[in-house]
């Protein structure tokens, strides 16, 4: 079944909003794109999130292995009319699982983080991961989290350390959206304090 741009994306948005308001909450996206695995270079949840927020007014940048990058960029552009740009200027940074670690860390340090007058002019990351769970991993505190919550994303410690440096000068920072193979999504906005705990 093909995607319904009106009702399906509304549902995805509500899940996204709920996850952004309640960091570490994991929500399942029930919608399908109607595209087969061969047609889609990333997982479905990630593509649905991209369809929900991207349009001609914003730009994106993809971090993935060669070949996949071009294919996904072409798909996103033809579906949403958003334009591809450099990692320093992109409003949305889309990271696939096979992206080179060094490139991801470099992008984390150079991507947009807003300025004090306009902190909203920052990059939002959409990250494809294997599996999201609330068992162990990171300990999260902050707005939207009652006491504390745990989240496991599969991202490296170096990634989270770089992210923590990037959000140090609040309100500047970046917001992260994770999407996994099981069509689950979760968010970590800039306000969330992320503590790295021992891998259980």
């Amino acid at each position: 079944m093909a995607i319904d741009q009106v009702h399906d994306l509304q549902q995805v948005y509500r899940n996204l909003l709920d996850c952004m308001a309640r960091p570490a909450t994991i929500r399942k996206v029930e919608q399908t794109t109607g595209l087969s695995e061969e047609q889609l270079p990333c997982n479905e949840a990630l593509f649905l999130c991209a369809l929900t927020v991207l349009d001609a007014e914003v730009s994106f940048c993809i971090l993935a292995v060669d070949g996949k990058t071009e294919k996904l960029a072409e798909m996103i552009t033809s579906y949403t009319l958003a334009r591809e740009t450099s990692m320093e200027q992109a409003d949305f940074i889309i990271v696939l699982q096979d992206a080179v670690k060094d490139q991801v860390h470099k992008t984390l340090s150079v991507c947009k983080m807003g300025n004090l007058i306009n902190p909203q002019q920052s990059a939002t990351w959409m990250i494809e991961v294997e599996n999201l769970s609330n068992n162990g991993g990171l300990t999260l505190h902050g707005p939207g989290v009652k006491q504390f919550k745990q989240l496991q994303t599969g991202c490296s410690d170096t990634f989270w350390q770089t992210r923590n440096r990037k959000v140090k000068e609040y309100p500047l920072g970046i917001d992260l959206i994770f999407a996994d193979q099981l069509n689950q999504i979760s968010c970590v906005p800039r306000t969330t304090s992320v503590e790295l705990t021992e891998v259980s």
Partner: peptide, 16 residues
Amino acid sequence: KEIRRATLKAVAIPGY
């Protein structure tokens, strides 16, 4: 979409 993007940013920067 434009309102939704602004809302997501608003939630990420409470009170701004």
